[in-house]
């Protein structure tokens, strides 16, 4: 049951967006999110919406997959909208409901905040849906590399992500095994309230922790035996290379950003 969980939400397909270098996609996502913050107006949000829609079309991924990501943060979005709607101070009162008033400023902020949040989430879903976790890790490592001078452990972060990706399925499988072993001995994970359920997780988590420490120990030894000594002097089998698509993608991104900045000043 628990084994079927997939990590990340990579949606394999053949599209221009899938083909892009992970660095292009990470940069693109970053600047898209940034653009949502530098300018707030109907026109720019319309532009961002159009750009995002165009990218989603290009990925060939069904839109409902994109919207899936919103489900988990639905409450946060609603909360943001409601709070902004009622708590923004303003002069033009539109409606009064007992102690709460809705102002036109409130309506405006609530609208912008809501759309911004939704586009932010969908924008980053495009990245994770079109990039496999492994390439994503490579991309992050490559982009953080220049920051190593200011002591950002780029290689270590990437290595940790790789190891996590490798061991999550193994640990899930192990959780499943321990769960079954405890169930066979009469453990009850299903019934009771929240606190009782949480407490019943203890006999599951303790063995899991112990075994993962043992695995970590083994793995460290195995890595050392294979000459691992950190990122220094390390080469890579697969090097990231920009292709023609990336060149075009960067151009489109530039154009998009220029329009945004220009709109800000007129």
């Amino acid at each position: 049951m628990i084994r079927d969980i997939t990590i990340g939400q990579f949606y394999p397909a053949k599209s221009r967006i899938h083909e892009l270098d992970p660095r292009t996609k990470i940069n693109g996502t970053f600047f898209f999110i940034l653009s949502l913050f530098i300018n707030q107006s109907l026109i720019t949000y319309g532009l961002a919406f159009l750009a995002l829609s165009a990218v989603i079309m290009a990925t060939t991924i069904p839109v409902r997959f994109m919207l899936k990501g919103l489900k988990s943060i639905f409450i946060i979005i609603m909360l943001t909208i409601v709070l902004n709607l009622f708590l923004t101070p303003g002069t033009t009162v539109l409606l009064t409901l007992g102690r709460f008033t809705i102002t036109s400023e409130g309506l405006q902020t609530a609208f912008y905040m809501g759309t911004r949040l939704i586009m932010l989430i969908i924008g980053s879903s495009v990245l994770t849906l079109t990039t496999s976790p492994i390439t994503l890790t490579d991309g992050i490592e490559a982009l953080l590399k220049p920051l190593e001078r200011i002591k950002v452990p780029a290689h270590e972060i990437a290595m940790m992500m790789t190891i996590a990706l490798r061991f999550i399925p193994i640990l899930l499988e192990e959780t499943d095994k321990i769960m079954k072993a405890q169930l066979a001995r009469g453990a009850d994970f299903e019934s009771g309230g929240l606190i009782k359920k949480a407490r019943s997780m203890v006999p599951l988590l303790v063995p899991l922790f112990i075994s993962s420490f043992r695995r970590a120990d083994d793995l460290a030894l195995a890595m050392e035996a294979r000459c691992y000594r950190g990122g220094e002097g390390r080469t890579r089998l697969k090097q990231l290379k920009y292709k023609k698509v990336d060149f075009w993608a960067y151009n489109i991104l530039m154009l998009y950003l220029i329009i945004f900045v220009v709109l800000r000043f007129i």
Binding site: I170, L219, Y228
Partner: peptide, 24 residues
Amino acid sequence: DNQIIATIVEEDVAFGPENIGIEA
């Protein structure tokens, strides 16, 4: 299980040579 580091077979095989700085 505890001695395979990478998530793809060939990348794991490459782990050792990568560490000793062999070119791609």
